[in-house]
Design a protein around this nucleic acid. Structure first.
Length: 588
RNA sequence: GCCCCGGUAGCUCAGUUGGAUAGAGCGCACCCCUCCUAAGGGUGAGGCCGAAGGUUCAAAUCCUUUCCGGGGCACCA
């Protein structure tokens, strides 16, 4: 409808230009907005206000000319000029009813748009290090990334969902060493567990797997490991936990050899990655690809990336390290690519990864990161720019942590102690649907309070419940219909939409017609929360209607018309919830 | 020191990319079931859009300055 009105105005403007009532070279960006107040009609355009100056006429007079030049349209009942020069459009009732027919005809496809024109988008999200289970911070990235991907797909983009597996690097080595030490404990050795090691219970489980499969093959005396190492950090501030754990890793690699160390690492990686995959699947989050960091190093892509930067003349040696002059491209300072020991940094691998993404030919690349990584945005974009790629093809969205509350009380979390709230625990407590919905209720970069009590409550205070209940209620009405030995006659319903004249009904029809616009604007702005808020409003419209009117009435035509309307509501709720990854139950 | 995010009703937040009289939920005060789920609905009170300048026909929205919260970074992946 919006686009249609836009066309009408453009035609009117062309007409005026031909009549020399407007300058020929006038460029106009025709905006059509929904009115806030129904007294202002259904849609409004501010075109006369924006063109007033360039056309050297006062806006109201210009508006009058545009209206006079406007071609007739069967959907437009009348136009009015209002306020400082707005053109208000009033639609005919028939035009409004069309949306119900569209919903019935298009079903699950209703609301889809071709905004994306099939352009290929890669969305990378979660990508948590496989060093432990996902926690509630990752949960928000997962829910947001999945919802955004679905939303982009609904808006006509061809979406590729990807998880970057950090299966190389120091953190994995620390994990492998941690597993080994726990394994030694299982063998009966007494170990001073490093303060910087991974202390979660899952490390014991992995160690037990190693012990079961390899018995005591990797056993050695702890003194062989710890003698002569830099001391670990102590509570009084002495020692160095980083130097200590690095020492432990070196000893582990010496004592176990490559293959033995690899057993620790791979057993851990397999177990944790499997767990993460299962966790995400249960959370309703699916991926097209799990991209391995290790594969980049193996294929030489990391060294290629470094070489490319060097050949482009943007690197230099200092203090034994190879630096990238990222400050020339907007970063606040230069960054190390390859350390003096010859090991490329995580950053170098990240550059290689993004070059790989670009070479795969996506029109747009979206990274969804935790907000704690925001310092990396500038340097990564700098690297793409240095290699002559357009940095705007890469869009990095930062997701803030969610702070959990139980009622008014803040839930404490601590990664250090290994006692964090996992995503799995959260799902167990509030359920998948509530978790998915609550996570995407806010803009991603906004801080969020997640109230566990509210998420669990079965009342109208809880928006998930409220929306799902509206869906279930429609289903319930249909069951009632059957109990009264009546059937829904779609044909008759859609032929009698004109009998829907109650204000509640007209309000719902307006809401339904907004859905495609919400999908577009949500996709354009990367804001799935728009869908969440929209569904809340639609559910509210429905419950209000339900309370005010009977649907199962004597009059066949009216009854079927009303049923057509509420079935359309059910369909749109279902479509919206599907994008958010929330189920639409038939009964509750 | 630098960077990011936020400041809108008592609370939690929307606000259609700058539009007409700033919205919703909760909470509060009243009210509504012989009726498809009261797991619901209605009415009302409640606002200097943090502050000050600026940009223009028009600013909660854009720019500058400033105040107050929250988070992050300072050769670690």
């Amino acid at each position: 409808m919006k686009h249609q009105l836009q066309k009408l105005i453009i035609q009117a403007l062309e007409q005026l230009k031909r009549n020399d009532q407007l300058p020929k070279d006038l460029e106009a960006d025709v905006q059509i907005d929904r009115t806030r107040d129904s007294g202002h009609g259904d849609y409004a355009s501010n075109i006369a206000l924006t063109l007033g100056k360039a056309a050297k006429t006062n806006p109201r007079e210009l508006a009058a000319r545009i209206v006079a030049a406007l071609p007739a349209d069967e959907n437009v009942k009348k136009t009015e000029i209002a306020g400082p020069g707005f053109i208000n459009f009033f639609l005919t009732p028939d035009a409004s009813y069309t949306v119900i027919k569209s919903v019935h005809k298009e079903g699950g496809e209703f609301g889809r748009s071709d905004l994306g024109k099939n352009r290929r988008v890669l969305v990378e999200f979660v990508s948590a290090n496989p060093t432990g289970p996902l926690h509630v911070g990752h949960g928000r990235g997962a829910a947001f990334g999945a919802a955004l991907s679905n939303l982009l797909a609904a808006a006509g983009f061809s979406v590729h969902r990807e998880y970057y597996v950090n299966d190389a690097g120091r953190q994995m080595n620390i994990l492998a060493a941690s597993v080994w030490l726990r394994y030694l404990e299982l063998c009966g050795e007494a170990v001073d567990f490093p303060s910087n090691g991974y202390k979660g219970d899952y490390v014991f489980d992995i160690a037990a797997t190693v012990h079961r499969d390899h018995s005591e093959k990797f056993r050695c005396a702890p003194t062989m490991i710890f003698n002569g190492l830099p001391p670990d950090a102590t509570p009084d501030g002495l020692g160095d936990k980083e130097a200590h754990i690095d020492g432990v890793i070196d000893r582990a690699q010496e004592i176990l050899g490559n293959t033995g160390f690899r057993v620790m690492l791979d057993t851990a990686l397999d177990a944790i990655l499997d767990d993460i995959k299962r966790d995400l699947t249960e959370f309703g989050v699916e991926y097209d690809e799990w991209f391995s960091e290790r594969s980049l190093a193996k294929s030489g892509a990391v060294l290629d990336a470094v070489t490319s930067l060097r050949n482009a003349g943007h690197t230099y040696d200092k203090g034994g390290n190879l630096w990238f002059a990222s400050s020339k491209f907007g970063d606040e300072k230069d960054r190390v690519l390859v350390r003096e020991n010859g090991v490329p940094t995580y950053f170098a691998a990240d550059i290689a990864y993004h070059l790989n993404k670009i070479r795969r030919g996506y029109d747009q690349i979206i990274d969804i990161w935790g907000a704690d990584h925001h310092g990396y945005v500038a340097r990564l974009k700098a690297s793409l720019q240095a290699l002559n790629f357009d940095p705007s093809t890469l869009e990095i969205l930062l997701v803030q942590f969610a702070i959990l509350y139980r009622g008014a009380e803040r839930v404490q979390m601590s990664t250090r102690s290994g006692q964090f709230v996992t995503l799995r625990q959260l799902r167990g407590e509030v359920g998948k649907d509530a978790a998915r919905f609550f996570y995407v209720m806010r803009k991603c970069e906004q801080h969020m309070d997640f109230d566990l009590e509210l998420a669990k409550s079965e009342s109208s205070d809880n928006p998930v419940y409220y929306i799902q209940y509206a869906h279930a209620r429609v289903c319930s009405v249909l069951r009632q219909l059957n109990e009264k030995s009546l059937n829904y006659d779609q044909r008759q319903g859609l032929d009698n939409l004109a009998s829907l004249t109650e204000q509640h009904e007209l309000d719902i029809i307006t809401s339904l017609s907004k859905y495609p616009e919400i999908v577009e604007s949500g996709a354009r702005n990367h804001e799935p929360h728009q869908i969440a808020h929209y569904l809340r409003d639609l559910a509210n419209d429905f419950h209000t209607y339900y309370n005010a009117h009977q649907f199962i009435v004597e009059n066949d035509a009216l009854r079927n018309a009303r049923l057509s309307l509420i079935l359309a509501v059910r369909q749109v709720i279902r479509n919206g919830l599907t994008i958010l990854g929330v189920s639409a139950p038939e009964s509750m």
